[in-house]
């Protein structure tokens, strides 16, 4: 057989895994695609709808539904990346019978898939926003994209680390998944850091996700800024889990393969 380079093999494995994940996630029927999107949008619609009807919040120069949709889309992108990375090894373990398929590829593919689904959901939200004539204006598009890419990388490093750790201790993955849901309320998603009392502000800023949310809000909305974002702090939160995750992955890859 022809010898192929490591990168060529990686590429074809990721494509094959991606198509397989699409098939199992969306099913073979066309309605499956609708459900996959609906799944991503359901909570956002509920929360955005409820919040914007109930809340007396008003933000200067911001349509509140837009604010909450942006936050939720970003948060769920991150959350889905982390939670689906944790299950990546066990869901694909039968495919490790083919030596081309490495555990890392399964995580990488799942992250790609979450990004893909998220883009689709975002497009639907943009369409809804345009239809209802919300103010979708973005302050700094390039920085916004960079912020989202950083958020994805952050999700990837936490996801990789959790996946590798939960290979050794199964409960670790479960614990991370339990923590993920309450994060919704303490990550500056439905409010801004600026709107909090100073003492709460200080506490909540220990949560790295708050910085990401503030960064995304700050670059999206003209009337908000990124003054609370500590770039160094989230840099460490990205790089340290990534390093730990990769280190233990390299040490444990063979163990993961042969289970």
């Amino acid at each position: 057989m022809l010898k192929r380079s490591a990168f060529t093999i990686f590429k074809s494995v990721v494509i094959a895994l991606f198509l397989r994940e699409v098939q199992t996630r969306f099913g073979s029927r066309r309605l499956g695609y609708f459900w996959a999107l609906f799944d991503a949008m359901f909570l956002v619609l509920i929360f955005a709808g409820l919040k914007s009807v109930l809340s007396k919040h008003s933000m200067h120069g911001i349509d509140y539904p837009v604010f909450i949709s942006v936050s939720f889309l970003a948060f769920f992108l991150w959350k889905k990346i982390v939670s689906s990375s944790i299950g990546a090894f066990s869901a694909n373990s039968a495919l490790f019978a083919y030596k081309q398929v490495k555990p890392f590829d399964t995580i990488f593919t799942r992250v790609l898939l979450e990004i893909f689904v998220s883009i689709m959901a975002t497009l639907v939200f943009i369409a809804i926003g345009l239809y209802f004539q919300f103010n979708l204006h973005v302050q700094n598009f390039n920085m916004l994209i960079l912020a989202i890419l950083w958020l994805i990388l952050f999700g990837f490093s936490i996801g990789l680390m959790s996946a590798v750790f939960s290979h050794y201790y199964e409960t670790f993955g479960k614990m991370v998944k339990i923590i993920l849901t309450p994060l919704l309320f303490i990550s500056a998603i439905m409010y801004t850091v600026d709107s909090l009392p100073p003492i709460a502000r200080e506490i909540i800023l220990y949560n790295p996700l708050v910085h990401f949310m503030e960064m995304i809000h700050g670059y999206y909305f003209i009337t908000l800024d990124t003054r609370y974002v500590d770039y160094e702090y989230i840099f460490y939160w990205t790089i340290i889990p990534l390093y730990i995750g990769l280190y233990f992955y390299v040490k444990g890859e063979r163990g993961i393969l042969s289970t």
Binding site: S12, V13, A16, L95, Y98, V101
Partner: peptide, 18 residues
């Protein structure tokens, strides 16, 4: 992988071999 059909599995293996 139990959830894949025979056809999907053939496609998958062919794809990883490029």
């Amino acid at each position: 992988q139990g959830s894949m059909t025979g056809r999907q599995n053939v496609k998958f293996v062919c794809r990883i071999y490029g």
